Simulated assay, not measured.
Amino acid sequence: MMHADLIDQEDFRERLVALGLSIPPGVSAEQACEQAVSGLSPERAVALRRLVEELLGGSATLLPNVREAISRTLLPALVPR
């Protein structure tokens, strides 16, 4: 039997918390992204870019709501200006 690594909104929230972000339990992936980019410092932006690269480039499967939240909220906020 194969087991796939799945990233749901709680796994995603835990990864953001591991970066030192204060994301309360029970929030949606979209809300977690919005809070993550709130007051985005250069250091936080680098850490978030690395996380996004890891999630999008890794072998784990992102659930659709997590992938959509990253695409809609995190990616635009992390584009260098």
Rank of each mutant, 00 (worst) to 15 (best):
E54H: 15
R67Q: 14
V37G: 04
P80Y: 12
T61D: 08
P25R: 08
L55A: 05
A69C: 08
G26K: 08
V79S: 12
P64S: 08
F12D: 00
L55Y: 02
P25I: 08
V37A: 08
V52N: 00
I70Q: 00
L75G: 06
R72P: 01
D8R: 08
Q31R: 09
G20D: 10
V79Y: 13
S71G: 10
N65H: 14
A45E: 04
R72H: 12
L6H: 13
F12I: 04
S22T: 11
I70K: 02
L51G: 02
E43M: 12
S59C: 09
C33N: 04
L6F: 13
R49F: 04
L48G: 01
I70G: 00
S28G: 13
V46N: 07
L62A: 03
V46Y: 10
E43A: 15
A60N: 08
D5T: 09
S71T: 13
E43F: 14
R15C: 03
L51E: 01
R13E: 06
L40T: 11
Q9E: 14
P76N: 09
E43C: 10
D5P: 01
L78P: 00
L51R: 02
P24R: 07
P42M: 04
N65G: 07
P76Q: 06
C33L: 06
G39C: 05
Q35H: 09
F12P: 01
A32E: 02
E68N: 11
L56A: 12
L21G: 01
A18P: 05
S28P: 02
C33M: 05
A4T: 12
L16Q: 02
T73L: 06
D5Y: 09
S28Q: 04
R49I: 03
R49P: 00
V37S: 06
E34M: 13
R67P: 03
M1H: 14
G57N: 12
N65K: 10
S22H: 13
Q9C: 11
R72C: 07
R81F: 09
A29F: 06
L51N: 02
S41I: 10
S38H: 14
E68T: 12
V27D: 03
E34Q: 15
R49K: 13
S41V: 14
G39S: 06
I23E: 03
V52A: 03
L63D: 04
R13H: 07
A36W: 02
N65V: 11
A60I: 07
A4H: 10
I7W: 02
S41R: 15
L78E: 00
Q35A: 09
D8E: 11
S22V: 15
L62W: 01
A36I: 01
E43L: 15
